[in-house]
């Protein structure tokens, strides 16, 4: 059983799929698309960066992703899936294209070795970056509380002491923030409904 429709209201996306689709219908698609870019380009770029190990190539792939998205914009159906889910599908394809180009050219990329080299490995990168992107949007103090809880693995008591916050405040931030991360992850994940080019 899924509680998604209810949970989804926790996310207040400034560039939601529904807004984008209605802007397209009204002929304001180019303005709405800039909003979409501003909201989601860090996620697209960060996934590409981890998959390719190089910032310049990640810039290039980000450009290709959004141009692909723009060209297939009329195939996007907000009822079939979320906007970031659709963008992540396009991102995977453009990264796969880049990998194929590298294999063909036998080119050795500059920069750090990439974290992954296969479509299956990419899933883990997308999952982690989706959550990191949402973490970065939690604001403070919830963001700091969650970084301490998730990455440094401090207990809520230790976090309360470290940040000089009441225990109850820390607990309630943890509950709300963890739910929000889960909702974001589910919204992007469980909807392979749109098939962009």
């Amino acid at each position: 059983m899924s509680a998604q429709p209810e949970r989804r209201r926790e996310l207040d996306d400034s560039a939601s799929g529904r807004d984008f689709a209605s802007a397209l219908a009204n002929g304001d698609g180019d303005v709405a698309f800039e909003e979409v870019y501003r909201r989601w380009s860090p996620l697209v770029y960060s996934v590409a960066r981890r998959a390719l190990g190089d910032g310049h190539e990640a810039d290039d792939v980000t450009q290709r992703v959004f141009i692909s998205a723009w060209r297939s914009r009329n195939s996007y159906d907000p009822a079939a899936g979320s906007l970031p889910g659709w963008l992540m599908t396009i991102t995977r394809r453009r990264i796969a294209d880049r990998w194929a180009e590298r294999a063909r050219d036998r080119s050795v990329p500059d920069g750090d070795p990439p974290e992954v080299g296969s479509a299956a490995g990419l899933d883990g990168v997308v999952d982690r970056m989706v959550i990191a992107d949402e973490l970065a949007r939690l604001g403070e103090p919830p963001g700091q509380i969650m970084r301490l809880a998730l990455y440094e693995e401090l207990t809520h008591t230790e976090i309360a002491e470290r940040l000089d916050l009441p225990l109850g405040t820390v607990k309630s931030h943890i509950r709300r923030s963890l739910n929000r991360l889960r909702t974001r992850w589910e919204v992007i994940h469980d909807e392979p409904g749109n098939d962009p080019r």
Binding site: P42, L43, R50, E115, G124, R128, A136, R147
Partner: peptide, 9 residues
């Protein structure tokens, strides 16, 4: 993984 940072293009 390690703490994942999101950055902009």
């Amino acid at each position: 993984g390690d703490a994942a940072d999101v950055s902009s293009p």
